[in-house]
Every structure is written in C-alpha cells, then in structure tokens.
Simulated assay, not measured.
Amino acid sequence: MNPDHISLHNKQFEPYLSATQLATAIQELATRLTQDYAGKTPLLVAVLNGSFMFVADLMKGLKFDCEVSFIKVASYQGTSSTGSVKEVLGLSEDIKDRHVIIVEDIVDTGHTMRMLLDTLAAKQPASLEVATLFMKPECLQHELSIRYVGLSIPNDFIVGYGLDYDGLGRNYPDVYKAV
C-alpha cells in the first residue's frame, strides 16, 4: 500500500515519509533509549490513538525490560488543535518512583504534552521523559524539553502510520502530507 496520492474526507495528500524512513528513525530512538535506560525497567505511557503503531514498533527495538500502558487524550478537531486538552482515559498504574517515558506520535503546539508532563510529574516519578516520532518546532507554544525526537518536521498536516484526519488514514504504513 503506497499510493501516489490519497483522498481522505475533503483533503488530498501526497507521499511524505516512507515506511523505511520511519523504521530508521524509530530504530535510532530505540538505540538511544536502550543506552539511557540500561538496567532500568521504565513504564512506557503511550498516548492513544495516534501512537499505537509507533509504540509497538519502538518496543520491538528496545533491549531492556519495560512495561507499557495507554492513556487517551483529545485535542484535535479536523486538521487543527482545539487548544484545550481533555483527558479521556487515564493512567491506572502507580508511577511514584518509576521511570516513565511518554510515547507520543506528534508534538506540535505542545498543549497536550504540557498537560501530560504536569499531570504525571505530580505523581512523583523517578524520571519523566518524552519520546515522540514527530516534532513541529515552529508550532510549539510551550517550553518543552523533549529528549527523544524521531523526526523534526515543518508545519505540514500529516496522516498515516497512526496519524489520522477525522478518524481516517491511520492504517497507511507511510506518512502523507496535505496538499
């Protein structure tokens, strides 16, 4: 499945990043995390829905014991952030004194990540880091120190590899950008 263009709802998308490029970026992140978390057993907190493919592939490359949990937050409507974040499904594990890595598909405005970092930091983890597949530095509206970034990208609206446009497009193994 690698069409030249895809159409979702009322938008057209063109190829942007191949599955091979994504796999390379994810493996590089897995290697860095493996070095930094050797001898530790962190909890990966994957942010649904967008990160499900990323966290699955990332975990395959990790060479240490870890656990995974999922949380669901919503801040997007259509192609833009609503600016407010609503926690939908929360974390049930006790993270006090645990090493926690938030696994996110994309950080753009930073609203969701700021809320998650503040919420989880209040639970007193031993450490708290973020691993994101995509980062849009020019969109950030919050001071965030994100240590693990797969790919920095411009402010293009993208779909595929877990990212969607109003529910569609997550199933594509490649990433497409709106034209």
Rank of each mutant, 00 (worst) to 15 (best):
Y76R: 08
M115Q: 10
T41Q: 12
A178M: 14
K86N: 14
T24D: 13
L8H: 03
E138M: 14
C66Q: 01
G83Q: 03
K63T: 15
F13P: 01
M115N: 12
V159Q: 00
I6N: 00
L48S: 04
P137R: 01
L89P: 02
K136G: 03
M59N: 13
M115E: 13
G61Y: 06
P125H: 06
D36A: 12
P42L: 09
L91I: 11
N49V: 00
S69V: 08
N10W: 06
V47G: 04
D94V: 12
L89G: 04
S7F: 08
S69K: 07
E104D: 15
V85Q: 02
R98M: 14
V45A: 05
D94Y: 06
D105P: 05
S75P: 00
F64L: 15
V45Q: 02
N155K: 06
K40L: 15
I95N: 03
E67S: 12
L116M: 13
V47L: 11
A38G: 05
L163M: 08
Y37P: 08
D164M: 11
G78A: 11
T109F: 00
S92Q: 15
P173Y: 03
E143V: 10
D57E: 13
I153F: 08
G83V: 02
T119C: 09
G150C: 05
S145N: 14
A74Y: 06
S7T: 05
E87V: 11
P15I: 05
T31A: 14
D4C: 07
S18I: 13
T41N: 12
A38R: 08
G110N: 02
S84W: 11
D108A: 11
A121V: 04
G162M: 03
I102Q: 03
G90D: 15
L140N: 02
P42M: 11
V107L: 10
K11H: 05
R32N: 15
L163S: 00
E104G: 07
A74I: 09
G39N: 13
A30G: 14
L168E: 01
E104W: 09
Y172V: 01
E143W: 02
T82M: 14
S84R: 13
D105K: 03
L58F: 07
Q21L: 07
G78T: 10
S80V: 15
C66W: 02
I71L: 09
E143S: 07
M113T: 08
H9L: 03
V45G: 02
K60N: 13
L128E: 06
A126H: 12
E28A: 13
C66A: 14
M59S: 15
E93S: 15
D94Q: 09
Y148T: 08
L144S: 05
S51R: 03
S75M: 05
